[in-house]
């Protein structure tokens, strides 16, 4: 009996040791759901011997909240925020400055216009992951519209009313509403924000669910016909068998984003994280990522490794004359307005 207890205790403490002391050779990646290809992780693990654990979140806001709550140490070594949230996280001191990104062996593959981007001009905090746009997608077989106007989404016709789904978080939806109304991103004008709120509240009558996860599953089951969506992810839905899934490029434009790898404050596995950043920038690996998530990337040479599916992906080709407007880091005043609009909408 005693021996068994001792054995048990020893094995528990061994488990502990293996999980905390031998942290080296581990990497905790915190990424959007359905955004990390197993193939990429497997390849990285095989090449470096580093064990990767992936946790997921559903919005930039959730990531920001988790980093804030971490109190200077979240346990994550890498996260993948969009451009404006990188800026906020730098300002709030939530991510680490990283030495020598520009000196990494694969940095040379990054297209020149994406070296030192506006949100990280000195390239000390981030390396590129993927880029794309946010708008909405619909099942063409069940919907008679053609996705040419943002208002089709915000003022759904009777045929889709009740079968519309919207992202769970405000950031992109509010920007889409700005596009629909012709107002500016990060507006500080209460009248404009009031108009955004009215539009969203009007839309809510037709909304079945607010969610940023399982979007393709929801469209596939026919639970909803119209869903706020990302270009690449909607392409993935198409690949998975929703043949009529069409991504809308309304004339008002779509909301652009550029996701990057950053290192949250207090990250323990710094070298492993840097190895991963460098690894992802290699054209071959970046192509694995794009072939999986179907988004564009900042590594031109990755084209050589893209699958035919990816080369022929219709949902991610921006038609001529459709503007792509990138989300910006709003100041606190306008951010507070956005939060208020969303809280009012959610009640």
């Amino acid at each position: 009996m005693k021996e068994k207890v001792i054995k048990l205790l020893v094995s528990i403490s061994l488990l502990f040791a293996s999980s905390s002391l031998m942290a080296a050779g581990k990497l905790n990646l915190y990424n959007w759901a359905d955004y990390t290809p197993d193939a990429l992780i497997d390849k990285f693990e095989a090449e470096t011997g580093i064990q990767v654990t992936v946790d997921t979140y559903d919005s930039n806001e959730t990531l920001l909240a988790k980093l804030q709550a971490g109190g200077g140490s979240t346990g994550y070594d890498l996260a993948v925020p969009s451009q404006h949230f990188v800026e906020i996280m730098i300002k709030e001191g939530l991510i680490e400055k990283i030495d020598g990104i520009t000196g990494m062996s694969n940095y040379k593959y990054v297209a020149e216009q994406f070296q030192g981007p506006s949100f990280d001009p000195t390239q000390e905090y981030s390396t590129p992951w993927q880029m794309g746009s946010a708008s909405w997608a619909y099942r063409a077989d069940s919907y008679s519209g053609n996705g040419s106007s943002m208002m089709e989404f915000f003022k759904p016709s009777d045929e889709v009313c009740g079968k519309v789904a919207v992202f769970k978080s405000p950031e992109e939806v509010v920007n889409m509403a700005h596009l629909a109304l012709g107002s500016n991103f990060c507006s500080e004008d209460p009248n404009e924000m009031q108009a955004v709120m009215d539009l969203l509240i009007e839309q809510k009558k037709c909304v079945a669910v607010y969610s940023s996860e399982g979007i393709n599953e929801r469209l596939m089951s026919g639970e909803v016909i119209m869903h706020a969506h990302w270009d690449g992810y909607s392409q993935v839905g198409k690949w998975e068998g929703v043949d009529d899934l069409t991504y809308a490029y309304p004339k008002e434009g779509v909301v652009g984003w550029f996701d990057s790898l950053v290192m949250p404050k207090g990250a323990k596995n710094v070298e492993e994280a840097k190895a991963f950043m460098n690894f992802v920038m290699h054209p071959e690996n970046m192509a694995i990522l794009s072939n999986f998530a179907a988004y564009a990337n900042a590594i031109p040479e990755s084209v050589n490794y893209l699958s035919d599916d990816m080369k022929n992906a219709t949902n991610i080709q921006v038609p001529d004359g459709i503007p792509v407007k990138f989300g910006q880091a709003c100041n606190k005043e306008s951010q507070a307005l956005v939060d208020k609009v969303w809280t009012k909408l959610m009640q």
Binding site: T62, Q68, K168, S169, D339, W342
Partner: peptide, 9 residues
């Protein structure tokens, strides 16, 4: 829960 995730208040 909303205040500690999306709304951050």
């Amino acid at each position: 829960q909303f205040q500690f995730s999306y709304a951050r208040n």
